[in-house]
């Protein structure tokens, strides 16, 4: 599904060159749930941004779903992001003056679905995260945990094959964090591949695999529960909103 070989990312400013990733190697299979941990500044966000086609890289090979993404243009990258990838950010990133319905609607608009299809998906996904009855509320009227649930609903609405989350629980208390984690696990059980960056070791342990990033490299991989490739393959690849 996701295959990075010797990916290198260098940030250049006038004064310094920062090697955020150097020879980063990772293979994530369809249906996996991978957590990413590591010290601050080690390159976790950089890896996730590159994985999500938000950022370019300087060297190496990155195949997403069998497609080499190195030379895609902006429109093609936007399209891939829109169709295959869902994002969840630490700071929810909801649009403050759109209500929940319209926030979840955003990726669907760029997808070009008709209005009844959009409505169906939005309602399902908000139901999945338990917020179907708050559709007309504005983000500011929700708690942090609820806002993150909306962000998850938004990430899922396009039925992505691949969900990227950068410290999705970083702004939540541990009870909320665990409920969001449970939601992600349910989604993963439905077949969506998930890569999640976290600082919380207890959350990291809940995933099937944890990778540890240090100095822009994968320095350790822990398999928490052994899951054979056959098991992985048997999980339906359909989107998580088909509940």
């Amino acid at each position: 599904m996701l295959n990075m070989q010797n990916v290198t990312k260098i940030f250049r400013t006038d004064l310094v060159e920062t090697r955020a990733l150097s020879d980063f190697n990772l293979h994530v299979k369809e249906g996996e749930f991978v957590t990413v941990t590591g010290p601050s500044g080690s390159g976790k966000t950089t890896f996730l941004n590159i994985a999500g086609l938000l950022e370019s890289f300087d060297d190496g090979v990155y195949d997403l779903d069998g497609q080499n993404v190195r030379h895609l243009n902006d429109t093609q990258r936007s399209r891939l992001r829109n169709e295959k990838i869902g994002f969840i950010f630490q700071s929810f990133n909801l649009i403050p003056d759109l209500d929940l319905f319209d926030n979840v609607d955003v990726p669907l608009r760029y997808r070009g679905f008709n209005s009844s299809e959009r409505k169906r998906r939005i309602e399902r996904c908000l139901e999945l995260v338990g917020l179907a009855n708050r559709m007309k509320h504005l983000p500011a009227q929700l708690s942090g945990g609820q806002q993150q649930r909306v962000a998850i609903a938004r990430a899922l609405a396009g039925e992505p094959r691949f969900l990227l989350a950068d410290e999705p629980t970083g702004n939540l208390d541990s009870k909320m964090a665990h409920s969001v984690m449970q939601l992600l696990k349910d989604i993963n059980d439905e077949g969506t591949t998930i890569v999640m960056v976290t600082h919380d070791p207890s959350l990291a342990r809940e995933a099937k695999r944890n990778i540890f990033v240090k100095d822009g490299k994968v320095s350790d991989v822990t398999h928490i529960t052994a899951s054979t490739p056959e098991q992985v393959a048997s999980i339906s690849a359909s989107g998580a909103c088909h509940v």
Binding site: G52, L54, D74, T75, S78, R79, R81, N82, E83, G86, F87, N93, I95, V106, P107, Y110, R111, R154, A155, G158
Partner: peptide
């Protein structure tokens, strides 16, 4: 810019 960055991230092309 925050909203624009977000829209870009979740699939809006530059053109859109």
């Amino acid at each position: 810019s925050a909203e624009i960055g977000l829209r870009r991230a979740i699939g809006a092309s530059r053109q859109a």
